[in-house]
């Protein structure tokens, strides 16, 4: 395979496995882990809203289980950071994952869309970022 330019990272986004996740023939964390296990990529961009049943308030247990599943698939060592807030847990990184993104789908940020949950004041305080999905969010900063 042709080598990537210096500074580039080859990664696979779990969004590409969306149809398989929806079919639900196996748990989403297992599908995500198989991206590494099948040798597709060792750097995985994962979407918490796909991989974690407890989204948008991911539990530490579920995040840890996902991390373990990816580790066992052979993707490398995992971050040992234990999240303390919702936004941190949402951003808990899979092994060797360089860009884990999570949009906040439970509200509408003013002036934009798809912003990371870490930009939400409520989420940073460990709370669900918005209660009313039909209302513009007032917590974005």
């Amino acid at each position: 395979m042709q080598q990537l330019p210096n500074g580039w990272t080859l990664a696979a986004s779990s969004f590409n496995w969306t149809p398989e996740v929806i079919r639900a023939e196996r748990p989403a964390p297992e599908i995500v882990a198989a991206i590494a296990g099948d040798g597709v990529a060792t750097v995985i961009e994962l979407e918490a809203g796909q991989a974690l049943r407890s989204f948008p308030e991911p539990t530490a247990e579920e995040v840890d289980a996902l991390r373990s599943a990816v580790e066992e698939a052979g993707a490398g060592s995992a971050s040992s950071a234990r999240a303390s807030t919702t936004s941190d847990r949402t951003a808990a990184r899979a092994p060797r994952t360089s860009a884990v993104t999570s949009s906040c789908p439970s509200c509408t940020p003013p002036g934009g869309s798809g912003r990371p949950a870490s930009a939400c004041r409520s989420a940073r305080r460990g709370r669900r970022c918005c209660a009313d999905s039909s209302r513009s969010c007032t917590s974005w900063s």
């Binding site: 969004f15 969306t18 639900a24 809203g49 796909q50 948008p56 789908p105 439970s106 039909s134």
Partner: peptide
């Protein structure tokens, strides 16, 4: 099934 790319509020 939900024909979207991520989980959504039922209210949507």
């Amino acid at each position: 099934a939900l024909p979207w790319i991520r989980s959504m509020p039922v209210s949507c």
